[in-house]
Each structure stands twice: as structure tokens, then as C-alpha cells.
């Protein structure tokens, strides 16, 4: 085994995102601040998913790294016509940088989880209970039935297609997930 395989990946060049750089980045999205913020969040969410689905161990950090690099390029005067496409191009570079050490660390984490995990996370259960309680009764009942009953029958009972039922439940599920994530972040 060569030495470089034992070494951690080289540290990324750090460039601090200043308030001015962030403002310039938002302007690059849209001249309207609110629209720009929405587009920024949407792109960040996409990037987090991209990194998650490409086996990144720290998807949010990687997404922020991409956004920082774009902000830096914008500060340097770069004209970016399609920010999403540009961001995904940079994301590919970041992924390549991560690739070398990612697999070994993932394997170690997997073994640890196999050995130690056995029951649903009790803290997660409690947060979920709070979020479920905050849902309208009808929505909660739909979720309960979806996860307990035959879905074709449930769709027929609701007067919708199975696919429409699925979409409805998945949106509710995402709402619950966001609620739990928010509570976890602030706890």
C-alpha cells in the first residue's frame, strides 16, 4: 500500500463567504431578493440530494462548498448564465475530490451500524410523535391507513388512483420529515 492511500484527502482551499459575496451570489440568481432566496434554497436542496445519492458522507457540507465556490467565482466577476448547470459541474469536481477516501470510511460506518443498531431511534420516535400530533386528523389517519392497509383498496376508498394516493402520502411524509428535522435542529 502506498503512503498516499493512508493519508486523509488534502484540505480544501478555504474561502470564507462574506456577506457581500452572498449578496452578489443572490443577485446572480435573481434581482428580486425573495425570488433569489427561493432559488438559492432550491438549488441547495438539489445539491444535497445529488451528494447524498452519489455517496457523499457530508452532503450538506459538500453542497455548501459548491455554493461557496460559485460565490467566489461571481465575486471574481464570472458571468454564469445557468447557475444550476454550473453548480452541478462544480459538484462533479467536488465529488471527484471526495471519491478517494469515501469508500473506506463508508464501509467502516456500515460495519459499526450493523453491529450496534437494533431499535428505532427513541428520540426520533418522540419528535415524530410531536409532528404527527400537529397534523390534521384526516392527514394522520391517511398516513396510518397507508402504512397498515392494502393500498389499492385505500385508493379506491379515497376515490383516487394508487399513484395519486402515493403522491399525496409522500408529500405528507416529506412534511413530517421536515418537521422532525426542524425540531431536531433546534433541540
Amino acid at each position: 500500500m502506498t503512503d498516499w492511500q493512508n493519508e486523509p484527502p488534502p484540505p480544501r482551499r478555504r474561502w470564507t463567504l462574506s456577506g457581500e459575496a452572498f449578496d452578489r451570489l443572490l443577485e446572480a440568481f435573481d434581482s428580486d431578493r425573495e425570488a433569489a432566496s427561493h432559488q438559492y434554497e432550491e438549488l441547495r436542496r438539489k445539491l444535497i440530494d445529488l451528494f447524498s445519492w452519489e455517496r457523499s458522507e457530508a452532503a450538506e457540507d459538500s453542497a455548501d462548498e459548491v455554493l461557496n465556490r460559485i460565490a467566489r467565482r461571481v465575486m471574481e466577476g464570472a458571468q454564469v448564465s445557468n447557475l444550476t448547470r454550473y453548480a452541478f459541474g462544480i459538484a462533479r469536481l467536488v465529488l471527484q475530490e471526495e471519491a478517494r477516501s469515501r469508500r473506506a470510511r463508508a464501509e467502516a460506518a456500515y460495519e459499526l451500524r450493523l453491529a450496534t443498531r437494533n431499535e428505532p431511534d427513541s428520540a426520533m420516535l418522540e419528535l415524530l410523535r410531536q409532528c404527527l400530533d400537529a397534523l390534521p386528523k384526516k392527514s394522520r389517519q391517511l398516513l396510518e391507513r397507508y402504512y397498515s392497509e392494502d393500498r389499492s383498496r385505500l385508493a379506491a376508498a379515497e376515490g383516487i388512483t394508487v399513484n395519486a394516493l402515493r403522491n399525496r402520502v409522500m408529500r405528507l411524509r416529506q412534511q413530517l420529515y421536515d418537521c422532525v428535522a426542524h425540531k431536531r435542529d433546534i433541540s
Binding site: 428505532p120 402504512y147 413530517l176 420529515y177
Partner: peptide
């Protein structure tokens, strides 16, 4: 979350 959801629902 998925595990908790199934357990809860």
C-alpha cells in the same frame, strides 16, 4: 425516520 414512521403508524 422511516423506521420510526413504521413503528408509529
Amino acid at each position: 425516520f422511516a423506521e420510526a414512521l413504521r413503528t408509529s403508524l
